[in-house]
Nucleic acid binder design. Structure first.
Lengths: 218, 218
DNA sequence: GCATCGGAAATTGCATGCAACATGGAAAGA
DNA sequence: TCTTTCCATGTTGCATGCAATTTCCGATGC
């Protein structure tokens, strides 16, 4: 009867709460009252508790024993560490991808990059952001390492609210696409170290864009 | 009255079950019956369920909806991916450590390395393994990035049963110490790329040692 | 003999209830 | 007026109970 059958309530709850957090519907520091969430979603406290614990281990919420759960607060210092970690892991994926992507995977990455050129030109930030997710996902997949891909995806989700905003900065789309170009060229040519450096630079520049916005107060 | 006061039953359970898994008391593929675990630890099913979910997100156990939990099985392919991921992340930590370790941290790393020389010479595999954990922990800490350190620690725990066994191979202690030597020299000298390469090589050699043992059937 | 089907037992998912702890505020003392 | 103590209230941690699903095992048909 439910649209999302097969999965348990706990799973659906975890997904919905996570979605609410990364989209900003639940602000950092917001108290996550078990009973309130249970009422809101029409379930009992038990699946809510299990969902919150799950989100706790993934870092999205902070669960303090006997003191309830809150949406994880990220201090500027922690935000910087998250970006550095993401940059390093994505760069590692890019290096591995340059070494081990199949010809088909390389062609697809190249094709995707060309599509994104149009999106960047027309300035459709939403469409570009979605394609961007696909692009980075293709690099993770090309590394042929599920563990690193998982880490990268998890970091990407946690940083999504911050990354998303920076796409609305003037000219950021074009610069992002140019940075991608360096990554793609290195991967296609199989130049591993260059791919690493290009991706590291790209994500570091994203971090700079985000920091610039935060300083200006967003 | 309890020895481990302050923490909740769920936390203690998660720690104990994790310990039982990494020490091998619970073999991979072993069924984790909620009621049985509850009886065994003298609690109800609720904290057991929460602990299992927590271990599920960290990868130690596999929870299949409505079908119970089992100790995570690692196929040889997954094992290889775990080792590659650990090698890459540890190498990244080593590179960052070479760039940003404080003088005090560098001195301590060097001192620890010298202590381990004696342990390797006397052939005390247990003591060497413990010191080894401290050594790698010092490198994570030196990277000054809690996110990467967490990832590295999590991988280290998951691979512990495999890494531990290889220390009993003949001559592995001396070779391990020599490999550490290259890492320490590069970090102390601040040669970042060299530290990266040395650590990558070290962990990759550990993987080779483990694979060699598995092929011979352990 | 092998595969398929059906029912009983076992096990999980979830709801509910109760006790322990944390939090906030009023009352008492300095 | 400020601090401290105590109590009321709310919230979490955990136990228990029930319904739904899965799994196991034997019977039936081919």
């Amino acid at each position: 009867m439910d649209e999302a059958a097969g999965r348990t309530r706990t799973e659906r709850l975890a997904a919905e709460i996570a979605e609410a957090i990364v989209t900003g519907a639940l602000a950092p520091g917001h108290r996550l009252d078990e009973q309130a969430l249970a009422d809101q979603y029409g379930v009992s406290r038990t699946p809510v508790r299990e969902a919150l614990r799950q989100l706790g281990t993934s870092g999205l919420v902070e669960v303090r024993p006997r003191r309830g759960a809150v949406v994880a607060q990220v201090t500027p210092a922690q935000l910087a560490e998250l970006f550095v970690a993401m940059a390093e892991i994505e760069a590692t994926c890019a290096r591995l991808a340059a070494q081990s992507m199949s010809p088909l995977e390389r062609r697809r990455l190249d094709a995707l990059h060309e599509v994104m050129a149009d999106l960047a030109a027309t300035g459709d930030a939403g469409a570009y952001a979605r394609a961007n997710t696909t692009f980075h996902g293709a690099v993770y997949a090309g590394a042929h390492n599920a563990v690193l891909a998982d880490f990268a995806l998890s970091l990407r989700r946690r940083l999504q609210p911050y990354r998303e905003a920076q796409f609305r900065q003037d000219g950021r789309l074009a610069r992002s696409h140019a940075e991608h170009g360096a990554v793609v060229a290195a991967i296609l040519a199989g130049r591993a170290e260059e791919a690493h450096a290009a991706m590291l630079r790209h994500v570091t520049l994203v971090e700079s864009a985000v920091e610039g916005m935060l300083v200006r107060g967003a």
